[in-house]
């Protein structure tokens, strides 16, 4: 089971990924890593010198994942932060408590790729699989 992979045939102009996790928490982490990989070439070069807490609740898991990824896009623009490590817990009440570890974007150090504009609802899917959970997400870039 791959953590995540970018997939073809869903969108031409934007970026689609499929992320997996043995449970919801792992799925959310892998989705966050997929999103970060759209904007930064090498996640290993992101130092974990800054810590940001994110707490969100929603009416269902799909909305929660959507909002969590949106929060990371927001932090990229508003605080110029990108993250390479996530410690988080998603509970049955559709709540997430996360600590994101990363640093400020630094063009000398990070090779930046394409800028994510938004998490779209287009073909957005979060399903239970035999191995755990899987999400399909298209990011507008």
């Amino acid at each position: 089971m791959k953590k995540f992979e970018f997939v073809e045939g869903i969108t031409v102009a934007d970026v689609a990924f499929v992320a997996n996790g043995k449970d919801l928490s792992e799925l959310f982490i892998n989705s966050a890593l997929a999103l970060t990989s759209i904007m930064v070439e090498d996640l290993k070069k992101i130092e974990q010198s800054k810590k940001i807490k994110i707490s969100l609740s929603a009416s269902n898991n799909e909305q929660l994942l959507h909002d969590f990824l949106e929060e990371l896009i927001f932090l990229k623009d508003a605080k110029l932060l990108v993250f390479s490590k996530f410690e988080l817990k998603v509970n049955e009440k559709f709540e997430i408590n996360a600590i994101c570890f990363g640093e400020k974007i630094n063009n000398e150090k990070h090779t930046m790729l394409v800028d994510p504009k938004a998490v779209t609802w287009h073909k957005f899917k979060l399903v239970k699989t035999n191995e755990g959970y899987q999400a399909t997400v298209i990011i507008d870039v």
């Binding site: 623009d77 508003a78 930046m112 790729l113 800028d115």
Partner: peptide, 17 residues
Amino acid sequence: NRAVERGLNQIGTLGSG
């Protein structure tokens, strides 16, 4: 406020893609 915070420093920038 979120929208303002996202755009505050971006006037005069091209973006990517």
